[in-house]
């Protein structure tokens, strides 16, 4: 008897279909809800304090009205640039090794395990490690060691980016179909060339996503910066000196007893999130412009 012949069964099937679809929609809403709630609350609390001064002035002393976080915004940009310069090349290079050249070797397995462990290390521990390695030791002939500095903060953020970038790069490279690699080898292209020009290029949208995830994650990190970049109330672009950062400034202001500083902390949090979203969108836009019609 054909399945569609029984009207009761047919109704049960339709009901099940609706129920499962409904559950999926509900789950989707639950995923989006916290994001919208946080963003909405930030706008509610912080939007009124976001003005031109916020982006152009440095913090005012306690008791004075106004002031902004211009130095912290620039400081965060410097720290993130340093972190990205360190974290992205090392992470991508490591990922290429894991997926292409070292596959199945003991070294690769050890590196993969280490990266996974590193990914799970709390950021405060990462900050302490960076402190012990970069801020603590006094080496007179090395300029960047021995004191709090933007350099130490950038290194801490960079190290935090490495495992995420490394593992997503590996995963994305492994997703490139074997047929594509064979096509390159079949043309008489040397293996290293095929890896760099074909495999990595094919996987590049996913690799860029991985880099953006790592970037967005460390952009909001406070703990590793407390022990390294320290924070700064004044303008500074000197990599050898403590530097301000948005998360540090938010942390400091939020813990303070002053209403004016609380308002600025809310505004800082809102600006931080908007800047992260903007920079991620910008990278996506720039990297998607070269994509051809019909490319998967």
């Amino acid at each position: 008897m054909p399945l569609s012949g029984n009207p009761i069964r047919s109704k049960i099937r339709a009901a099940t279909d609706n129920a499962v679809t409904g559950l999926a929609i509900l789950a989707t809403l639950l995923v989006i809800a916290p994001l919208l709630a946080i963003f909405g609350y930030l706008i509610y609390k912080g939007a009124s304090s976001v003005n031109l001064d916020f982006f152009t002035k440095i913090p005012k002393p306690v008791g004075e009205e106004g002031g902004g976080m211009a130095n912290a915004i620039v400081g965060s940009a410097v720290l993130l640039a340093l972190g990205t310069i360190i974290g992205v090349p090392v992470g991508i290079g490591g990922g290429i090794y894991l997926a292409e050249f070292g596959r199945g070797t003991k070294l690769a397995n050890a590196v993969r395990f280490t990266a996974d462990v590193l990914n799970g290390v709390p950021s405060i521990v990462m900050g302490m490690a960076a402190y012990a390695l970069l801020v603590g030791p006094q080496v007179s002939w090395l300029p960047f060691l021995g004191h709090f500095s933007a350099f130490a903060g950038g290194v801490a953020l960079g190290i935090m980016m490495i495992p995420t970038v490394c593992r997503t790069t590996e995963e994305m490279l492994l997703m490139v179909p074997h047929a594509v690699r064979e096509a390159a080898l079949g043309l008489g292209v040397p293996n290293w060339r095929s890896v760099l020009s074909i495999t990595v290029k094919t996987a590049s949208p996913g690799i860029i996503t991985g880099c953006m995830l790592a970037f967005a994650r460390v952009a909001g990190e406070t703990a590793p910066l407390i022990f390294t970049a320290l924070g700064n109330e004044y303008w500074s672009l000197d990599l050898n000196q403590p530097i301000a950062a948005l998360p540090l400034q938010i942390y400091k202001y939020a813990l303070s007893p002053y209403d004016e500083w609380h308002r600025l902390a809310w505004a800082g949090a809102l600006v931080l999130i908007v800047l992260i979203v903007l920079s991620v969108s910008l990278v996506r836009y720039v990297t998607s412009r070269g994509v051809l019609k019909g490319a998967s």
């Binding site: 179909p177 047929a179 080898l185 008489g188 040397p190 094919t202």
Partner: peptide, 22 residues
């Protein structure tokens, strides 16, 4: 092997153009 494969072309069972290339 690399030189050999330049002299001997190969076409595979499933079409495998490079997806990111024009």
């Amino acid at each position: 092997p690399v030189e050999i494969r330049r002299r001997i072309g190969m076409v595979f069972q499933r079409p495998n153009p490079f997806p990111t290339m024009s």
